[in-house]
């Protein structure tokens, strides 16, 4: 539902922008919203009690899951970027979104441009959509960890119901840990990659 509302805002922006052809929103306005947004994302992560409770139950293998998942996404995608000659840093930043399409597209737009921002938005939105639609089928091929690996940062909220249904309650904790950690580290990774000279 949230994805749908966000999509409506984005699409109505595209339609209005195309009709009016006027850049009302200057760079300063976007930068201020970005600061506010990241401040509140931080506040949300930091003030979440579940975040601390989950860390008490952690074991190393569960903790590694999001990092291995991120590394896997980036490594295979680097091969693709080289093959299709897509700019490497921008590509890595885009796939590092790990399904967190809203923030990743905002950061990529802010630190690069709208072109890469749109690819970040669609790539990460598709990651969520593919997880939601194809989990029932792909869990049979890749095993029960499939939706947790595939869902990335969304495994703590939007894709969690699908994960519980098709992977079982055993994957509940790892799914929440995975989503939480990825949600917290995705902004760092994207900003870091795009700031490499």
């Amino acid at each position: 539902m949230t994805s749908f509302i966000f999509l409506i805002f984005f699409v109505s922006g595209v339609i209005l922008g195309n009709l009016l052809r006027n850049n009302f929103f200057n760079i300063n306005f976007k930068t201020y919203i970005l600061y506010l947004l990241l401040f509140f994302v931080g506040l949300q992560v930091g003030s979440d009690r579940k975040f601390y409770e989950i860390f008490k139950k952690l074991n190393l293998k569960d903790l590694l899951f999001p990092f291995v998942s991120l590394a896997g996404s980036v490594l295979i995608s680097i091969l693709i970027f080289i093959i299709i000659k897509f700019p490497l840093k921008e590509g890595i930043a885009i796939v590092s979104g790990m399904g967190y399409y809203s923030l990743s597209s905002i950061l990529v737009t802010e630190f690069r441009n709208e072109y890469f921002g749109v690819i970040a938005l669609l790539t990460n939105l598709l990651r969520e959509i593919i997880t939601l639609i194809f989990t029932p089928l792909l869990v049979k091929i890749f095993g029960k960890s499939f939706p947790v690996a595939s869902g990335g940062a969304t495994t703590v909220d939007t894709t969690l119901p699908v994960i519980i249904k098709y992977s079982g309650k055993d994957f509940l904790l790892i799914s929440i840990i995975n989503g939480f950690i990825l949600t917290a580290i995705v902004p760092f990774v994207i900003i870091f990659v795009l700031s490499i000279k």
């Binding site: 509302i5 699409v11 922006g13 595209v14 922008g17 947004l37 994302v41 809203s102 749109v118």
Partner: peptide
């Protein structure tokens, strides 16, 4: 903060959409 994040993301996506559309 959760509600603020939702609202800010919606505004920002609209702004990005606007730039893309033009």
């Amino acid at each position: 903060s959760e509600i603020s994040v939702y609202i800010l993301i919606a505004i920002f996506l609209f702004v990005i959409g606007f730039s893309v559309g033009s």
